[in-house]
Design a protein around this nucleic acid. Structure first.
Length: 473
DNA sequence: TTTTGAGTTGTTCGA
DNA sequence: GTCGAACAACTCAAA
């Protein structure tokens, strides 16, 4: 009788799980284990909201495993030590885990492979790093050609695999630690963790024939008051949803519209999934991006810490920026476009180092992922892979008018602006004093005066960025 | 090796 | 109100 350990890391699901499938193939019974890695828990890039989502997700996975006669074995501390002990306890012949390509995960797994029979199977990306390369064998650094090459690859692996109860029923007596109590965070609109919820959301996003949200994703995702996005990122982050299942769904949706004209929404969504892979590959091939600019630029950041504090607190005086920042700290999730506006404001208007913002986002985002978060920040800061023109600076007022015309989103997250008339909701500092009194919102007292003037800040950023370009030569 | 075309997501200004 | 050009120069990818 052979025992196989299924080591769960970023694949908290049973469906379409290639590591689990491999464990099944190689063992007469499977021991599912999650190790709460003290290195990760103590990292300053971890936040309570994400931890809560993870811990609750582990309980959910345990429940799901129990329905097929198994349970989740939980251990904590150092992965090497925990696994060494577990292998001995259950006399396991092999450990099977989905490949995770972050720098930390790779060095951890390299170390473990030296002493333990660890087999990496599948990938947290749809196409693993190294599989999408230029004809000369080097990695892409521009998205569009990357996506073309990516699309030309066949999707390998079975995304419908379901474990059978028989192989779990024989789970021997193995001790598990108690499940950690999630940190007490009060989240507005919390994401319900788990595979079932992920499937439900995916279905909702795809269902409705030609009216399905996926088909209006290209425009709907930019309207903040309406949930036009899939809101699947936390589930993809922890593998509660298989990214390959998401891709197959997108491709199916595109095919279904081939005769029609409205495939744009589904194409856009597929591209977002490819971006996810792209940044996983970038971090893999260029690990220095974690701490440095992708490009060797020398931007002299101002790094004013009181302005940074105002940005974090959602008190910059620009409603759209502040609403995004409040949504982030209160709910742990923000629309992508709102993230970009807030990030552009930090890096371009305040000239604060993107790393500061990246760090803050990692502490608050439920979907916070080192590759995607880093890629997004470097892109917006103009230091990343994309040769983005440095003059691409978001205007917080015109963006606000475009994506939240009636101010529904702003009022949802900034209660002090609830009674500000639509005419002033995007720029409340323009309200005359009597209007301020009427709206119960005195500028400078109830809601801050803008901490910088955007017009001026834009000129300053243009100047500094063009200088830093010349300097870097 | 050289050349050519292109590069997620913007803003402003003036016709 | 709409539209196109300018904002500049550079790097990448592929022919």
């Amino acid at each position: 009788m052979k025992t196989a350990i299924w080591w769960i890391r970023r694949d908290l699901r049973l469906t379409g799980n290639q590591a689990l499938q491999a464990a099944h193939k190689n063992g007469d019974f499977v021991v599912p284990v999650y190790i709460i890695d003290s290195n990760l828990i103590e990292s300053r890039y971890v936040g309570d909201k994400r931890l809560k989502f993870l811990f609750s997700g582990l309980s959910k996975l345990d429940e799901e495993l129990r329905t097929i006669g198994s349970r989740l074995i939980l251990r904590s501390g150092s992965p090497v030590k925990s696994l060494t002990r577990l292998v001995r306890e259950c006399d396991a012949a092999g450990i099977f885990a989905e490949a995770d390509h972050s720098p930390y995960a790779r060095s951890r797994d390299r170390r473990i492979t030296q002493t333990l029979p660890l087999n990496l199977v599948g990938s947290s990306a749809v196409h693993p790093p190294g599989s999408v390369l230029k004809s000369d064998g080097t990695p892409y650094t521009v998205f569009t050609p990357f996506s073309k090459a990516w699309k030309s690859l066949p999707l390998l692996g079975d995304s419908t695999f379901q474990p059978s109860p028989e192989q779990f029923a024989r789970l021997p007596e193995i001790s598990s630690e108690p499940f950690p109590i999630p940190p007490p965070v009060s989240q507005i609109h919390p994401f319900v963790p788990g595979e079932n919820e992920a499937q439900r959301r995916l279905k909702q996003f795809l269902d409705g024939g030609s009216d399905a949200p996926i088909f209006s994703y290209d425009t709907g995702r930019n309207m903040l008051a309406y949930d036009g996005t899939s809101q699947l990122s936390p589930y993809l982050r922890f593998g509660m949803l298989s990214p390959r299942q998401a891709v197959l769904s997108a491709q199916r949706a595109i095919r279904s519209t081939q005769a029609g004209t409205q495939s744009k929404g589904a194409e856009t969504w597929l591209n977002e999934l490819i971006w996810r892979d792209f940044y996983i590959h970038i971090l893999y091939h260029f690990p220095h991006v974690r701490v440095e600019n992708f490009r060797n630029q020398n931007i002299r950041w101002q790094n004013d810490s009181s302005q940074f504090d105002a940005w974090c607190a959602g008190k910059t005086g620009y409603p759209i920026v502040d609403a995004a920042m409040r949504q982030l700290s209160e709910s742990g999730w923000v629309h992508n476009r709102a993230r970009m506006i807030a990030a552009s404001f930090l890096t371009k208007d305040l000239l604060i180092d993107w790393r500061w913002g990246e760090h803050w986002f990692m502490q608050h985002l439920i979907d916070g992922d080192p590759a995607a978060n880093n890629g997004g920040w470097q892109w917006i800061a103009g230091t990343g892979t994309d040769a983005a023109p440095y003059f691409r600076i978001f205007n917080p007022v015109s963006q606000s008018k475009k994506i939240d015309p009636s101010g529904v989103y702003i009022r949802r997250w900034l209660p002090e602006l609830v009674d500000v008339p639509g005419e002033f909701i995007h720029s409340p500092w323009l309200m005359p004093p009597d209007q301020q009194k009427l709206a119960g919102c005195r500028i400078g007292i109830d809601y801050p005066t803008p901490i910088v003037d955007h017009r001026w800040a834009r000129e300053r950023a243009l100047d500094l960025y063009s200088k830093s370009r010349r300097k870097s030569e």
